[in-house]
């Protein structure tokens, strides 16, 4: 398979999807009503304007893992709300709402499966769950995923969709950065490859720890990649942000990622990389 490189910056806007039950979904970029099945066939890219729709963690798994091979390894954990945190709304309520919206206990899915025939262990972040933020549960699930990869000696695939550390668990969230980095070293020690796929958004504490330490780093076209969010930068420094700032192409030209890949090419690109690591010719 030829490696695809899209050098043109296609500014795809990635929109937050709501409502899973309808037959149709409205593209929030161009307003077009798209038949859900048509959207799925098109990798959740608007057929009219090319905007990328947010993928749920489950949709991401379906898009990357061979049918019938996925084994869910997510631990049955949920946050205990260690700080008894409450802002305008108690954290417990936010958790419950996110759990109802996503059907998940927290912002990540962990599993094992085959990617174009290659066994992998993967962790996929769920942005709809409090912005894909990392608290104690996400930290533990990521550690668990990497430990599974070490045990099975299978490549670890981390699909990032996270705004950063979870504010509501305070320093305990911050410390998950250290936790995930510590466990990442086990992969290195055992020679287990680690591939990160950065999507919209990959920022904050997750990006300043595990997501920045992969052996191979692919960015999905249109991804937002950085540490501080654009609004924080504008407000703190008064700086004007250059065009394309923190987007996938910007990350590529600043040496942060190895490739920018359009969504429809992601699985093929990953398969190609895994072929090389296996020493087998690419299909």
């Amino acid at each position: 398979m030829p490696i695809r490189r899209d050098s043109k910056e296609r500014y795809v806007e990635v929109e937050l999807r709501r409502g899973e039950e309808t037959l149709w979904e409205r593209c929030r970029a161009c307003g077009e009503l798209v038949f859900r099945r048509r959207l799925k066939e098109n990798n959740y890219i608007c057929p009219k304007c090319g905007a990328y729709f947010f993928l749920t963690a489950q949709e991401r798994v379906v898009a990357l893992i061979d049918e019938g091979t996925f084994q869910d390894l997510t631990l049955p954990l949920e946050s205990t709300d260690p700080l008894s945190f409450s802002d305008r709304k108690p954290y417990r309520d936010r958790l419950r709402e996110a759990q109802e919206t996503t059907g998940l206990k927290d912002a990540v899915v962990v599993g094992r499966g085959k990617l174009a025939g290659h066994p992998v262990v993967l962790a996929v972040m769920e942005f709809r769950f409090i912005g894909g933020s990392m608290g104690t549960v996400v930290g533990e699930q990521l550690a668990h995923a990497m430990e599974q990869a070490v045990e099975a000696r299978e490549p670890f695939l981390f699909v990032v969709a996270s705004g950063g550390a979870r504010v509501q668990e305070g320093v305990l969230s911050l410390l998950q950065m250290a936790k995930t980095v510590a466990v990442r070293e086990q992969l290195a020690r055992q020679g287990v490859p680690y591939i990160a796929v950065l999507t919209y958004p990959s920022t904050g504490g997750v990006m300043a720890s595990l997501a920045s330490l992969a052996d191979f780093t692919l960015a999905e076209q249109g991804a937002l990649i950085g540490f501080a969010g654009p609004r924080v930068i504008e407000q703190t420094t008064g700086q004007k942000l250059p065009p394309g700032f923190q987007r996938a192409q910007y990350a590529l030209s600043h040496g942060v990622v190895d490739a920018v890949v359009p969504r429809e090419g992601l699985k093929g690109e990953l398969a190609h990389l895994l072929d090389i690591l296996q020493g087998v010719p690419s299909a």
């Binding site: 950065m177 070293e185 720890s209 997501a211 920045s212 540490f227 930068i233």
Partner: peptide
Amino acid sequence: YPGVEAEAGNIAGAIADCLA
């Protein structure tokens, strides 16, 4: 530092390397 030059120099990666 939350600034353009910090992002251009991959501040996230620099922090991650420090931790590792």
